[in-house]
Design a protein around this nucleic acid. Structure first.
Length: 813
RNA sequence: GCGGACGUGGCGAAAUUGGUAGACGCACCAGCCUUAGGAGCUGGCGGGGCAACCUAUCCCGGUUCGAGUCCGGGCGUUCGCACCA
């Protein structure tokens, strides 16, 4: 930037300043880290984006900027910071968009990626781009397939035919986590039940560890809470009910073993394997009809229907406590996926059983009495479900026992009789990873008539995804890859006979479940992750992302990390030491969406206000972990601050000495900005910088160099381009990010005199400027010398509360 | 239905352990500068009152010398989970 007339001061012009520094960072390798030689490594990770064709979203930039500030701050604090970024480019999202546009994902994805890349570079993030990953490239998914094989070798990947969630629009299977209220989370279509052969990961085997380890993690509480909820630990008992005239038993899971005497019937899920065995000839037609009806039902109607339906099987089981025969029913309010797929119904003490018993006039027995009830108090029109205050009744030798004790006693008694055991049940299901789609990594398995299921040997990875001109999914229940015979016909790796590849691809969430391991080793094509680098840089020190991934990505990543740890590939079992969920940016109280026409295009704002101003505004509009409402008007305030910072630096002088009061304020500001930035309280850190700059400039005074120079360092993480420009203008050749964080002098934080608030009976009546170390007695004397305070001190002083340096409260009366 | 988070000026918000409620910013008002201002600078800005003061953090109650903050009850917003046995 040149100015013809040197007497006209140069204004702050982001459109020239920002590209200049971006270029200089690239030339000097400012953002590059030497991963192999490091003393204080800090791995700062942000959730990588799906490279949408629409380009970077403000939500992306909000998330990335928050992570970038944390990364730059740690660097200023003396860490070597590794902050990579890449693209989650595989998946249904990209594939659907390509279908819609009549494009092919293989040529569309690189285009989207390069557009994203351009926007990200414009935003000025401190990314080491040498370590970029792209999940849709063979050099990445080769190792995704390797991860699959690791699970397979551990016996944690298995193929099972079973009921799965099928989206008729996306024409693929969905994981349970991808179904919301019976609808496909992606397209909103009601999900159907289908019976298909699918690959699953045994994540349920890790449920206890996934739950237990949460206590050790420094994560947002809301995220931990969501995971605990999802894992759904439930303590109870598994009880066996003998079936009349059969050798089989019905196993049920219950959390209320104490109510066994009130179990008046059993219910099996319609698809329960015992249904066929126990159903009597007389009931066979009715049962089959009911099974067919529920099978056809999609999950949405099934879940919203409150009216209970069901059919009697004709069979009876024996209640192990009472010895009485009780009928066995089937009903769709019992879910095959949870517990054992069968329940003992206690209509007296469970809402659902009560409704069902009423609908089919089954016996309802009270076995728990509340504090005000007697054993024969009628239940009325609702079940008594309180499991804390009651005592057992009509329960033989357990009568009178409080419910909380009875749970254990009854379970123990039943166990003694061989009728059950105490168990812990989890809601978490195994992870279905098969997808009958095109745009994903082929599952590296080969089927051979002679050898059976054969894993692709590591040496034959990657199993490359072939170019398919027609990649449109169909209703067949198999992937479009099943149309490419030339691709799927392969010799068996074990015996050489003609064999056939698995044609399904894996879930996108498998791609992202290990990408953080890949970044530091993205330059290596001989290993998935280099041992030394992994040891030096992992686990991730700071992970920032959206809480919408609280149960999907974050749970899968933890699981895969544990598996790789157990296989001896990693020396840690939790991938993310610290995780913080950022908030969401909304606009006019609503999520941004194309249909509402309220989407912000970051390019436009960065163009008009500069990337620094835009970054800083996003961080200033609300608490980072809560997000906030985007309002155009707000940017000007932040931009004004940057303009003033620049002109203060441009016009400052090093003559004389800095103002002592201003310096005192500076040291307090250094401390506050540091503390606030460390805890992601970016909005208040920015406010503190603004407050300080206001103090520096108050009254159009001459600004001293020593007053603004440290402020440039404080602002660097927030407005990196401008900070570099200022730092350079102040005579430094090297980057401000190598200048370190300014030290504050703790002695400068303490004032000699303080303003002491004086209250009388808890109400503020005056303020005194007193020595910081004033004694209580001296403060009272000083306060009473103040006419206005003395005025309120009528009567005798009963009590004095003195908080040094803050407050004096005189209680009179 | 169960669980979490939240509720503060015209607006976005701050108040980290109970200690001056409203920092910082937007908008607005007044003034300065200017040929001009959608620029810059200075000051004001919860409500009432000339003032001393009074009043005020969703509502009601409690604990405390003192409550936006803690406790009990209610209302509202919002996000998870949801026939989970």
């Amino acid at each position: 930037m040149t100015h013809a007339d040197p007497t006209i001061p140069a204004p702050y012009e982001p459109s020239t300043v920002e590209p200049r520094w971006q270029q200089r960072w690239a030339e000097r390798g400012t953002n590059a880290v030497d991963l192999d030689h490091t003393t204080r490594p800090f791995y700062s990770l942000m959730m990588f984006p799906y490279p949408s064709a629409e380009g970077l979203h403000v939500g992306n930039l909000f998330a990335f900027t928050g992570s970038d500030i944390s990364a730059r701050f740690h660097r200023l604090q003396g860490h070597q910071v590794f902050q990579p970024l890449g693209y989650d480019a595989f998946g249904i999202h990209s594939e659907n968009y390509a279908l819609k546009m009549g494009a092919h994902p293989m040529e569309m994805t690189p285009r989207n990626v390069s557009n994203f890349q351009r926007q990200l570079e414009r935003a000025g993030l401190m990314i080491d781009w040498r370590y970029k990953v792209d999940t849709s490239r063979a050099d990445y998914y080769k190792w995704t397939q390797w991860v699959f094989l690791q699970l397979y070798k551990q016996g944690l990947a298995y193929k099972k035919a079973g009921a799965v969630n099928w989206c008729p629009t996306d024409k693929t299977v969905l994981a349970n986590e991808q179904v919301e209220n019976g609808l496909c989370e992606r397209c909103g279509t009601p999900v159907e039940q289908r019976f298909l052969e699918q690959w699953f990961f045994r994540i349920s085997q890790y449920a206890e560890r996934l739950l237990h380890n949460l206590d050790t993690l420094d994560w947002s509480d809301i995220t931990k809470h969501a995971q605990r909820n999802w894992l759904g630990r439930s303590e109870g008992a598994e009880l066996s009910f003998a079936i009349d005239e059969h050798s089989d038993y019905v196993r049920v899971f219950t959390t209320r073993a104490d109510t066994i005497y009130g179990a008046t019937y059993l219910v099996l899920a319609p698809e329960h394997p015992l249904v066929g065995t126990v159903t009597t000839a007389a009931q066979a037609d009715a049962v089959r009809a009911y099974q067919d009806a529920t099978k056809r039902q999609d999950l949405i109607t099934r879940k919203s229907v409150k009216d209970k339906t069901g059919v009697f099987t004709g069979a009876h089981a024996i209640n192990p406590a009472t010895g009485a025969p009780i009928p066995i029913w089937i009903a769709d309010y019992v879910l095959m996926e949870y517990g054992t797929g069968a329940i003992m119904a206690v209509p007296g003490h469970d809402e659902r059983d009560f409704e069902f018993a009423q609908a089919f006039t089954l016996p309802i027995v009270r076995v728990v009495a509340g504090p005000d009830d007697r054993a024969d108090t009628p239940l009325g029109d609702t079940a008594f479900t309180d499991d804390t205050g009651g005592r057992l009744v009509n329960s033989a030798q357990f009568d009178g026992l409080p419910v909380n004790e009875a749970k254990a006693s009854v379970t123990a008694w039943l166990a003694d009789g061989g009728h059950g055991t105490a168990v812990v049940n989890y809601r978490l299901h195994d992870w279905c990873i098969s997808r009958q789609r095109y745009w994903g990594p082929p599952i590296p398995i080969i089927y051979c008539d002679a050898c059976g299921t054969v894993p692709v040997p590591d040496s034959q990875l990657p199993v490359e995804l072939p170019f398919l001109a027609d990649f449109k999914p169909d209703d067949s229940g198999v992937s479009p890859l099943a149309r490419d015979a030339a691709w799927y016909h392969v010799p068996c790796p074990a015996c050489g006979a003609a064999a056939r590849r698995e044609t399904d691809v894996s879930d996108t969430f498998l791609d992202s479940s290990w990408y953080f391991l890949r970044y530091p080793s993205a330059t290596r094509d001989d290993v998935p992750f280099d041992a030394a680098r992994t040891r030096a840089w992992l686990p991730v020190d700071s992970y920032i992302g959206g809480n919408e991934h609280a149960v999907l990505h974050l749970l899968y990543s933890r699981f895969v990390t544990m598996v790789l740890h157990d296989a001896g590939h990693l020396d840690f079992e939790e991938p993310f030491t610290k995780f913080r969920a950022h908030g969401m940016i909304i606009r006019e109280g609503a999520k941004m969406s194309k249909s509402k026409g309220n989407v912000i295009n970051p390019d436009v704002y960065m163009e008009e206000w500069g990337a620094d101003a835009f970054r800083m505004y996003l961080m200033f509009l609300g608490p980072y972990e809560e997000g906030g409402d985007f309002r155009d008007a707000g940017i000007s305030g932040v931009r004004r601050f940057l303009d003033r910072l620049w002109s203060s630096v441009r016009d400052c002088s090093s003559d004389g000495v800095a103002d002592a009061e201003v310096l005192r304020k500076l040291h307090r500001t250094i401390k506050k900005v540091g503390d606030d930035t460390a805890r992601l309280s970016y909005n208040t850190a920015i406010a503190a910088m603004m407050e300080y700059l206001n103090a520096v400039r108050r009254g159009e005074r001459n600004v001293h160099r020593d007053e603004v120079l440290p402020l440039v360092q404080l602002a660097a993480a927030y407005a990196p381009h401008l900070a570099e420009e200022c730092w350079n203008t102040l005579g430094h050749d090297a980057s401000v990010f190598d200048a370190g964080w300014p030290m504050f002098d703790p002695s400068m934080l303490l004032d000699d005199t303080v303003e002491l608030v004086v209250q009388v009976n808890g109400k503020v009546r005056g303020k005194l400027n007193v020595a910081a170390d004033i004694t209580q007695d001296a403060a009272v004397t000083a306060a009473l010398a103040d006419a206005n305070i003395a005025k309120f001190c009528v009567g005798e002083i009963r009590k004095v509360i003195f908080v040094p340096k803050r407050l004096l409260n005189i209680v009179v009366g």
